[in-house]
Simulated scan of single mutants.
Amino acid sequence: MSRARIRLVAVAFTAVLAFGTLPASAYAAAGPEAGVSARHHGSHPSEATILQIPLQGAVNVRDIGGMRTYTGGQVRRGLVYRADALSKLTAADLTTVSGLGLGKVVDFRIPMELQYDGPDKLPPGLTATPRPVSDLGLYGTLVGAIASGDPVVQERMLGGGRAETYMRDIYRTFVTSPENRAQFAATLREIADGRQGPILYHCTSGKDRTGWMTYVLLRALAVPEAGAGRDYLASNTYRAAYDAQLRAGLKQSGRMQNPDLLIPLQEVRQDYLDAATARMEAEYGGFYGYLTDGLGLDLRTLAKLQSRMVR
């Protein structure tokens, strides 16, 4: 890419971040790419761009492409996928995943999550790259609360707004932790580079660490904040039935009398995202500062990201 082209993309990128969100009518529906089994979320044109990859062993696997940008472009499909844990994929799932042509899988889970949930099941030739992003000990707290089987202990650990506070604190570390920022930055650089082919990244539920990663990527591609936020909140739709079944199982087994204590941990919420973006404003003065100063992405990388991911 020429220096003139880099400057042009960088100027355009900086400019679009200065504007507010576009109206919903600015989003156009995009059909699924040929050969990919997919489900569209919702029937409204502003929602139809969210494309799910249906699997039996994972419920929150999506192609992040399809969104319209401020610049009139559209995020390309078939290049970046977001997911929940892939440790329970079936043989049929592996065939579907193989059809995505992935060149790299990035796993944001911490070692304790791998210990309990198991490593990814992937098509031959693919091995997940561990890139752990801290959950501030939430997974261990959750395991301990459930294992106690004591409703008083569980209420003390998760009730009274404590679960919600825990989630907001975790989201703030996506901005404040140098280690977490390094993991997100490395993934963005690989997406921009493109030499490894299509990339899938995931955590356990595919909603918080994966949700923030996708929100940042879409915003970096000049997708309006409303569109990136809608993609983030869509995890609630894709995970609702699975999470409700988990709560019902815990109650039936007697391990939790009040499994609704888990709902703030199972859901994504606008105020969780707001906790991260507010810290981003305080630390870096806005999204562009987070990309350049927080994540250390230079203009050449941002231009490559745009060139590869937006058509």
Rank of each mutant, 00 (worst) to 15 (best):
Y284W: 07
G294A: 07
D293S: 14
D274W: 08
Y284V: 03
Q266R: 01
L262G: 01
L297Q: 11
F287I: 09
Q266H: 09
R300F: 00
G289H: 04
P264M: 04
D298Q: 07
G289E: 07
V268C: 10
E281W: 02
D293C: 08
L302Y: 04
G296W: 03
L265V: 12
L273P: 10
Q266P: 00
K304I: 00
A303R: 01
L295D: 05
A276N: 13
R279M: 14
T277H: 10
F287Y: 13
D274I: 06
T277P: 11
R300K: 11
L302A: 05
T301R: 02
A278L: 14
A276M: 10
E281L: 11
Q270C: 00
T301S: 01
L273G: 07
Y272W: 10
D271A: 05
M280H: 06
V268Y: 10
G294Q: 08
R269G: 01
G286M: 11
L299E: 15
P264D: 05
E281Q: 13
T292I: 06
E267P: 00
G289V: 03
T292G: 07
R279W: 08
G286F: 04
E267M: 14
A276H: 13
V268I: 11
P264W: 01
A276T: 11
Y284I: 00
A282D: 13
F287M: 12
P264E: 06
R269T: 00
L299D: 15
A278N: 13
I263P: 02
D274S: 14
T292Y: 06
P264V: 01
T277F: 10
V268F: 09
V268K: 10
D274V: 11
R269D: 07
G296P: 04
G294L: 08
T301N: 02
A276D: 11
A282F: 03
A275D: 12
A275N: 12
Q266C: 00
Q266M: 11
T292N: 07
G285A: 06
T301F: 01
L295R: 08
F287W: 11
E267D: 14
R269A: 10
D271W: 05
R300D: 14
R300I: 08
F287H: 08
L265Q: 02
M280S: 10
G285F: 09
A275V: 12
G296I: 05
G289S: 04
E281P: 00
L295T: 06
M280Q: 14
L299A: 14
L302F: 05
V268R: 12
I263M: 02
E283Y: 00
K304P: 00
Y272Q: 09
L265C: 03
L265N: 05
D271G: 00
E281T: 06
D298V: 03
G289N: 05
L297D: 01
M280C: 09
A276L: 10
F287C: 06
L273F: 08
K304S: 11
T292R: 15
T301M: 06
A303F: 04
I263K: 05
V268H: 07
